[in-house]
Amino acid sequence: MTTTAPTLDLPTRVSVSDALSQTMTLAWRATMKMRRNFEQLFDVTIQPLLFTAMFAYIFGGAISGDVSSYLPIIIPGLIGQTVLTACVATGVQLREDMDKGVFDRFKVLPIARIAPLAGPMVADLIRYLIASVLTFATGFAMGYRPGGGILGVTGAVALAVIAGWSLAWIFTWFGIIGRSAQGVQGISLMVMFPLTFLSNAFVPTDTMPNWLQTFADLNPVSHVISAIRELANNGHLGAETGWALLGCAALVAIFAPLSLRTFNAKM
């Protein structure tokens, strides 16, 4: 059958402004979910408090002689670690979401195909923000006085949020291709731990064997942490920040198209 000229004036595609407003509506939905399931925020609330105290008191003496001189090293390191953990949750929750009936309805709505993916990613910026602010606050309570001042710390937090968003694309991809939330969690932790521990987050990389040091120095997480240290401790916006942003951009360039392609195939 051939189509006769439709007399109805319906749009054949989603406009950019509609897509943005749909993304923000779905971000609102994600924040409501966070509010209703407070335990989903444990990884960015309890964990920073617990880990900061734990790591500082356990490793402080051994690595830096005393706790207070370790704090400028460990606080940025822990921000990196906490934000990475929060990224893992981004992927796992996306998988859980996609397995629910409500996602079927998203598929059949005349909305931008990308909005159900972009919405939660926007909302998760709040999680990265909570994680980095709380870690700084805990450090401050333990006696950490960042030399970079308010401006430096603000810059460091901003970088942490940007890094969180960029790193989240890795785990978002896992979330899309994974078969179950547990599976996504499993593979994500397998990637998260090396990214965290094979970096300069807790110890200087020059104590590592050569091959490991090479990996740790190339690890984008290391650059993010170094940049956070420079910004928070010295208020210095330098080469490390550039490398960190470059690393983030590279991750996005690889994992965003991968994610979008697989996601569109499933929508």
């Binding site: 399931n37 629910k100 005349p110």
Partner: peptide, 19 residues
């Protein structure tokens, strides 16, 4: 996209947000 503006779908499993 056009077809989606002309239809409503109610499935076997309630497609509403539990949260």
């Amino acid at each position: 996209h056009l077809v989606r503006q002309l239809i409503g779908v109610t499935g076997q499993d309630a497609s509403v947000d539990e949260n």
